[in-house]
């Protein structure tokens, strides 16, 4: 049982390491930030347009 526990632990660590190794989480957050910035600024000008009608 001890052995299998150890095995499990090792394998989790490897997976974790590996995930971190090739993860693109930072990229996802970055592009989502870019997208939100575009949405917010576009609607800001759109409402400025509406307010000037």
């Amino acid at each position: 049982m001890g052995k299998s526990n150890l095995e499990m632990k090792t394998s989790t660590i490897t997976t974790k390491n590996k995930e971190d190794h090739s993860s693109l989480k930072g990229t996802l957050y970055f592009v989502l930030f870019v997208g939100s910035f575009i949405l917010v600024s576009w609607f800001a000008v759109f409402f400025l347009y509406l307010s000037r009608i």
Binding site: L24, K25, L28, V31, G35, L39, W42
Partner: peptide, 18 residues
Amino acid sequence: HKYEKIWLVFGIGSLALF
């Protein structure tokens, strides 16, 4: 990449919304 698909759906979706 899966995240790239998410990004393209978000990005192109925003453009379509505009």
